[in-house]
């Protein structure tokens, strides 16, 4: 464990909590892409299958359980509890355009052709593109509430911090996980456009982020 990875996990947890609290307190999921949240729940489900078979540390197990629980709670709030506020008419990204290439690639490029390894690889590749429906929804509506942009900021920051963690681990313990690194870089690149808008618009106290 290093400070970059810890900061990354905290940033990830903060993002998930920001979104969950926003939906719960406003009793609405307007402007939130349910599809992205389902994809994130799928990412955690396929990545943490070793939750009961492999024990890494208390921290690792606790965080996996927390991420699974919070992501499913978010999906539940969107599609069940506050489903009347869900903007399905704006959440129209074709997730099959993400799932098909990700599934194909995880069968082609993996460390071992075993169910657990292929599902882990699937979760890594899927996480890189899971935010697409949400970013697409924002471009479609042309705006995002500031809370939603803070959620996206911490979500994007988490994998950027993981990249720093991978650099650190490469130099200190010669560890590198190429699939995670390549996918993590792609994932962070997808956030760059948002980061630009976030720093130039939201942090200038403009409240909502309206797209040009």
């Amino acid at each position: 464990m290093n400070v970059f990875r810890l900061a990354g996990d905290v940033s990830h947890l903060v993002a998930i909590i920001i979104l969950l609290l926003k939906i719960w307190r406003s009793k609405s999921c307007a402007g939130i892409s349910g599809k992205s949240q389902v994809l994130f729940a799928l990412v955690f489900t396929t990545r943490y299958l070793d939750l009961f078979t492999v024990f890494i540390s208390v921290y690792n197990t606790v965080m996996k359980v927390v991420f699974l629980a919070l992501s499913y709670a978010t999906v539940y709030l969107i599609y069940m509890r506050f489903r009347n506020s869900y903007n399905s008419e704006n959440d129209t990204f074709r997730v099959e355009f993400l799932l098909v290439p990700v599934i194909g690639l995880s069968f082609l490029e993996n460390y071992a052709f075993t169910p657990l390894e292929i599902l882990w690889t699937f979760s890594i590749f899927l996480e890189a593109v899971a935010i697409m429906p949400q970013l697409f929804m924002i471009t479609k509506t042309g705006e995002a509430e500031s809370i939603t942009t803070h959620y996206l900021f911490f979500l994007g920051l988490y994998r950027a911090l993981y990249i720093a963690n991978w650099v650190w681990r490469y130099h200190t313990e010669s560890f590198y996980d190429l699939i995670a690194i390549v996918s993590g870089v792609v994932q962070t690149i997808f956030f760059c456009d948002f980061f630009y808008l976030y720093f130039t618009r939201v942090l200038r106290g403009r409240g909502k982020m309206t797209l040009p």
Partner: peptide, 10 residues
């Protein structure tokens, strides 16, 4: 060094 993909990361 060989790629060791030990799954200790979240």
């Amino acid at each position: 060094q060989e790629e060791n993909n030990m799954k200790d990361e979240l």
